[in-house]
C-alpha cells in the first residue's frame, strides 16, 4: 500500500513555545487512522499544519508523495486533501444545499466561472444532492445552515468536507459534544464516507476510536509516541501511562 500522508520531523513554534516537536507520522492509503492524545498535545495544531492553515517552522508534509509544505489551504485542497473543523465551520447564511454545493464546485472544474448559471450545472447539483442524502440532511434542503441543530451542523461540516471528492479526509473531533445516539449516527456516517478513502481523525471518544480505526497514533507533547493497531495501542504500556490510563482498561 502506498503512503497517503507522511509527516517528517515536523516542528512548529509559537514564539518561544514549541508545540509540535519533531513529529513523524505515516498514513497508508485507504487506512482509517485515528490520532489520540491528551488536551494540548498538539492534535489540532498538527491538523492545521497538514491542511495549510498554519505553516510549520521546519519539517515536511507529503501528500501522496508530493511535498505540500507551505502551500495555501486552497492549493492543498485542490490536491485532494479535505478537512473538517473542531469548531463548526460552515457558511451560516447559505442554505444547507448551497453549503454542500460550494464544496463541490471547484472539484468539478467550475472555478471562478461567472458565465454559467449555477442552477443549470447538472453534475454539481446531482453530486450535491447525493452528499445531502449521504449525510441525511435532504429534508433540510432550503434551511439556512446557521439555524440547524448542533448535530445537523456537525453532519453538514462532514458533508462540506467530503463534497469535493477528496481522497484524504481529515476530521477534527467529529463527535465532540454529541449525545450517545447522535454519536452512533455520526460513527455510521464516518464509516460510510471513509469507504475507499484515507481517513485521519482526531477523536476523544475512545469507543469511537477503537470502533472505527485501523490504526491509532498517540500524540503526546508534540510528538507521536506510538503508532500501531488498536490492539497493540491498547496493550502499549507507555501509552497507558501517558494517556489512556483507566479508559483503556475499562
Amino acid at each position: 500500500m502506498s503512503t497517503a500522508l507522511k509527516l517528517t520531523d515536523l516542528r512548529k513554534s509559537f514564539g518561544p513555545t514549541e508545540i509540535i516537536r519533531g513529529l513523524n507520522l505515516e498514513v497508508k492509503q485507504g487506512e482509517r487512522h485515528a490520532i489520540i492524545g491528551p488536551n494540548g498535545a498538539g492534535k489540532s495544531t498538527m491538523f492545521h499544519l497538514v491542511s495549510g492553515r498554519i505553516h510549520p517552522t521546519s519539517g515536511t508534509v507529503e501528500l501522496k508523495g508530493e511535498d505540500i509544505t507551505g502551500l495555501q489551504p486552497f492549493e492543498i485542497n485542490r490536491r485532494g486533501l479535505s478537512r473538517s473543523f473542531q469548531v463548526t465551520n460552515i457558511f451560516p447564511k447559505l442554505t444547507v444545499f448551497e453549503n454542500i454545493r460550494c464544496g463541490v464546485l471547484w472539484a468539478l472544474g467550475y472555478r471562478y466561472s461567472f458565465w454559467r448559471f449555477i442552477d443549470n450545472l447538472k453534475d454539481a447539483n446531482a453530486r450535491a444532492e447525493e452528499v445531502m442524502d449521504l449525510i441525511g440532511l435532504s429534508a433540510r434542503h432550503e434551511t439556512p445552515a446557521g439555524i440547524l441543530t448542533y448535530a445537523e451542523q456537525r453532519a453538514l461540516e462532514i458533508g462540506i468536507t467530503i463534497a469535493g471528492g477528496a481522497d484524504v479526509i481529515m476530521l477534527d473531533e467529529p463527535t465532540a459534544g454529541m449525545s450517545h445516539s447522535e454519536t452512533d449516527h455520526a460513527v455510521a456516517l464516518i464509516r460510510k464516507i471513509s469507504e475507499g478513502r484515507t481517513l485521519v481523525m482526531v477523536e476523544h471518544d475512545m469507543s469511537v476510536v477503537f470502533g472505527l480505526a485501523d490504526r491509532i497514533s498517540v500524540l503526546v507533547y508534540g510528538q507521536i509516541i506510538a503508532s500501531d493497531t488498536p490492539q497493540a495501542i491498547r496493550a502499549n504500556k507507555a501509552v497507558r501511562e501517558a494517556y489512556l490510563g483507566e479508559e483503556a482498561s475499562a
Binding site: P73, F74, F85, N89, C102, G103, A163
Partner: peptide
C-alpha cells in the same frame, strides 16, 4: 466564512 472557502479549494 472566508476560512472555509479556502478549504473547499
Amino acid at each position: 466564512n472566508p476560512e472555509r472557502a479556502e478549504f473547499v479549494g
